[in-house]
Design a protein around this nucleic acid. Structure first.
Lengths: 359, 359
DNA sequence: AATATTTGCTAAATCCATTTAGCTATCTAT
DNA sequence: ATAGATAGCTAAATGGATTTAGCAAATATT
């Protein structure tokens, strides 16, 4: 690489000091009484040679890297990637670049990631935390580095959190199924103690208890392979023949669940109604289209950036108190959860019988 | 923020020079004859106080930022986000972090992005280029900064490119439809001169010409709103009543096309067969499942990283010659493109008649 | 005319690490 | 006894910016 021009090169060429050039380039010319002519001369020359200040040097001196870091479970997950996309754009408008990384919900991997980004003097963290990184986040807070948790949060760590109304979302989904005449609603979720999962479970339980229905819950281990999840859902359906509706706690659980339902040749919603948590661009194209609890992706992303920028600005000053920003979900009703007119109880049992006769 | 400990603080505490500490920490202790005891002492202390070297200072001095930048059209697109995910992981294994950014296929935005990342002394670029940034890439090459183009490429810029066999992929898709008895196969693509789009068109044309079939092409403008694309496909279907199959050139065109087909109440593949370019996790769940030309996402990502690492390593030495790495596609055959036994020509016309009677 | 103020600019310190060149003390060989 | 080699370490330069403190000349004030 040929050597790049530095501020000193500029200064030398113009027979001024690098201080002057720096003042001009950083809008501090007036307060330092640099004459208009000289300002003009510097700007002209800088433009002419296409000088670009070295941000590394700048950051080293100022202590601001103008870099944020965003840690999500998996940047290829549609939910996280669409949020990332918006966060990237918004942050860029504020002059910030972003390191994206996938935690895989792995505690050790995430600790390593945080270590690396701390070395890089990252100015702020946006994180959907895996369990067990309380200490690392606390360390960041001690160093007065702004941290926002989103999607889920570690309650022990006092940060501003941007989350959705998981409880309300699950509650409204179950309620919707109940209103459409479903009487035994199953809930397929993850074996996870994370806040968002707990809240979704609680929302489900609340609605079930209110109507005095039977609670039917399947918990799938976290890093379960797809086929195994599908098998578990299949068994779950077979073990609970009276179950006439299913609420899936995540996007990918819903996908696996749909595969399982398809493999049992069950009819949606005739034999089993389906609602997913977290909407998907393609749910409307499935047949039947799948009802889902939509998360306000745009709002989440915007809020995350707004909150982080606030923190960065007010850093050093007396910090405003931390708060949980709770955003509403929206139930998108599609065919998969509609009432089935004249539906008999145990429609599925009959279907299974018919299936075995016809096959 | 409380001041972090620097290498000088370490040195002072141990009553040695910072040179010594640096040697020990960078594995250069032996070649500089630092005694074993001192090495041990330094490492112990560093561990004890949890010292983390400032990467900014390190990068400033060494000229290596250990940061890559990956520019794709849209990081929330499933194709790009899954590649990004893998690239992120692989690059991390080599000690590199990545700035991801979305070009939106916008020339000016991309120029601005490149400018910003150059200021940051990024060590290498992975880019799915929008049109019109030949000069910027050339500038990077002049500065001996490694650049890899992928997915598509600007032929004027001599870089190593990782691309898939777009021509072969489209060709095999059409051939597959022909073998299943489809006689008038339409191609829905973008108004785009980019290499990947041109090659897909050429693959389509080649197969059509070989069988002397009628060429039926719909070109949708680039940033067309979804509804408008759907409307265009609807008209395309209505204007070509004898068309019995459709090949879509991209993922999102296929989605819009499926919406259009559904809105016309057409049966797949009875009235119209469908093949998409670029497979999607959900295509197998559509009804019917959608046949697609799958891109080797994992291979693309791996190859991109391997090639970039090679370039970074051999930087300065006589560069190996640039090459196009062409990866094969795979046709995933599903129900949407299967032969329809006893299918009459113009089955769709009849269907449309029946529809209007029954409704 | 002497002093105070303002204008216009710069020297040098600083951020934190790496790296070159070299210094001293000890040991070896003659 | 003396040159030469080696072991063990360090001073100082360097990378490229920002920023504090301050200098010299021009202008204003009394």
């Amino acid at each position: 690489m040929k050597k790049k021009t530095s501020i000193h090169d500029i200064a030398k060429q113009l027979n001024v000091s690098s201080t002057t050039v720096s003042f001009v380039l950083n809008g501090k010319a007036e307060e330092n009484r640099i004459s208009k002519e000289l300002q003009y001369k510097v700007l002209e020359y800088v433009k002419k040679v296409g000088y670009q200040p070295n941000q590394l040097a700048k950051s080293l001196r100022t202590g601001k890297s103008m870099i944020l870091c965003m840690l999500v479970e998996d940047i290829s997950d549609p939910f996280f990637s669409s949020i990332s996309r918006i966060v990237e754009t918004k942050a860029f408008e504020h002059g910030y670049k972003i390191f994206f990384a996938s935690t895989e919900n792995d505690t050790e991997k995430t600790k390593a990631l945080i270590r690396v980004f701390r070395e890089r003097q990252v100015d702020g963290y946006i994180i959907a935390p895996p369990p067990g990184i309380e200490e690392e986040l606390q360390d960041l807070l001690h160093e007065k580095v702004p941290v926002i948790q989103f999607d889920r949060f570690l309650p022990e760590v006092k940060t501003t959190n941007v989350i959705i109304d998981n409880l309300g979302g699950a509650y409204s989904a179950v309620q919707h199924l109940q209103e459409n005449g479903y009487q035994q609603i199953g809930f397929v979720t993850l074996e996870s103690k994370q806040t968002q999962m707990q809240d979704r479970l609680n929302g489900y339980l609340k609605a079930i208890k209110e109507k005095k229905q039977k609670k039917v819950v399947l918990k799938v281990p976290y890093r379960n392979p797809n086929e195994s999840t599908q098998e578990k859902v299949r068994l779950f359906l077979q073990d609970n023949p009276a179950m006439d509706a299913l609420l899936f706690a995540t996007n990918y659980l819903a996908i696996d669940g749909l595969v399982a339902i398809a493999s049992l040749k069950l009819n949606i919603p005739g034999n089993i109604a389906v609602v997913g948590f977290d909407d998907n661009t393609h749910f409307s194209l499935f047949s039947p289209p799948i009802t889902a609890v939509a998360q306000p992706v745009l709002k989440i992303a915007e809020e995350v950036v707004v909150q982080l920028m606030n923190k960065i600005k007010s850093s050093g000053k007396n910090p405003r108190k931390e708060e949980n920003i709770l955003l509403p979900t929206q139930l998108i009703v599609r065919k998969s959860s509609l009432a089935v007119p004249g539906k008999k109880l145990n429609a599925r049992l009959e279907n299974i019988k018919n299936e075995s006769i016809s096959s």
